Amino acid sequence: MTLMETKDVLALSASIFTVLQFLAGVLVCKKYIRNGTTGDSSCLAFITCFMSCSLWLRYGVLIGDLFIVSVNIFGTVLQICYMIIYILYSVKGPTIVKQFIVAICFVLLIYFYSIYQEDKVLAAKHIGFLSCSLTVLFFASPMISLVQVIKVKSTESLPFPIIIASMIVSCQWFAYGCLLGDQFIQIPNFMGCVLSGFQLSLFLIYPSKRTDQASYFI
């Protein structure tokens, strides 16, 4: 298998797992619909993922990478759907709408910059840096629960399937970034590997009951 074939196979596999990771939000939204409310849950993950996918989409266009473009078109559309559902079932609807509008305006501002920036290489570097930063933030979002995990010595509040998916996706995109020699793909996914690995280690330190583990997949 040539290097080009290896990159394509790896990128295809990473894209498939990334799509599956994005689809994990369906379970979250299903819970919102079933309960009739979003409760105390935060929309930070949805907003962060929306901005991340949108910027990676533009970065993929700038560097001419079909895999990055394709997976992030899907991710962007899906996150918009998730946000609509969140807004419909949130008691803080108007506030969430304002936050989402700010996120959209930020993304549009970056798009306008990249379109009117004559130096496309420089534009790709700037958008790559922003995409990298947002992806690290997205991977780190479950870390908010760590204080509670350590306090109660239970990993019940951690989304085990999502963390596993993040680990798999991060490793694959990191390897793909290494093959491309693209530091903007390498750095956030290396951080994703580290953060996911740390969160998974907590399941060994503070093992949940079997019933708790099973509840993650319901």
Rank of each mutant, 00 (worst) to 15 (best):
T37S: 00
A11C: 06
V28K: 08
T18Y: 09
L10M: 06
I16N: 12
S13H: 02
L12K: 15
R34M: 12
L23I: 08
A11R: 00
S15D: 05
D40L: 03
V19D: 06
K30D: 08
Q21F: 11
L23H: 12
L20S: 10
V19W: 07
G36Q: 00
C29M: 10
C29S: 08
A11V: 09
A14Y: 00
R34H: 10
R34L: 07
A14R: 01
V28M: 11
G36T: 01
Y32H: 09
V28E: 05
L12D: 14
K31I: 07
K30P: 06
D40G: 05
L12I: 13
L12G: 12
S15H: 05
V19P: 01
C29Y: 02
V26D: 07
L12Y: 15
K30L: 08
K30A: 10
F22A: 00
Q21Y: 09
A14L: 02
K30S: 14
L12P: 08
F22W: 03
L20T: 07
A11Q: 02
K30Q: 15
D40F: 02
L20A: 12
L23M: 11
L27I: 04
L10G: 02
F17C: 15
A11F: 02
L23K: 06
Y32C: 07
A11P: 03
C29F: 05
K30T: 13
V26R: 04
F17Y: 11
I33S: 10
N35Q: 09
S15Y: 04
V19F: 11
S13Q: 03
A24Q: 13
C29H: 03
I16C: 13
R34P: 09
S42I: 06
T37A: 00
G36V: 00
L23Q: 06
A24D: 01
K30R: 15
K31E: 08
V26Q: 06
K30M: 11
G25T: 05
V26A: 12
T18C: 11
G36D: 00
F22K: 00
Y32R: 03
I16M: 13
K31C: 07
K31D: 12
L20D: 13
I33E: 11
K31N: 12
Q21P: 04
A14G: 06
T38L: 08
V19M: 10
K30H: 15
N35Y: 03
L27W: 02
V26Y: 11
V19H: 12
Q21C: 13
L10Y: 08
C29W: 02
T38S: 15
S15A: 12
A14S: 09
L10C: 04
G36S: 01
L12N: 08
Y32E: 03
S42K: 10
V26C: 13
S15V: 04
V9E: 11
I33L: 13
N35P: 02
V28W: 07
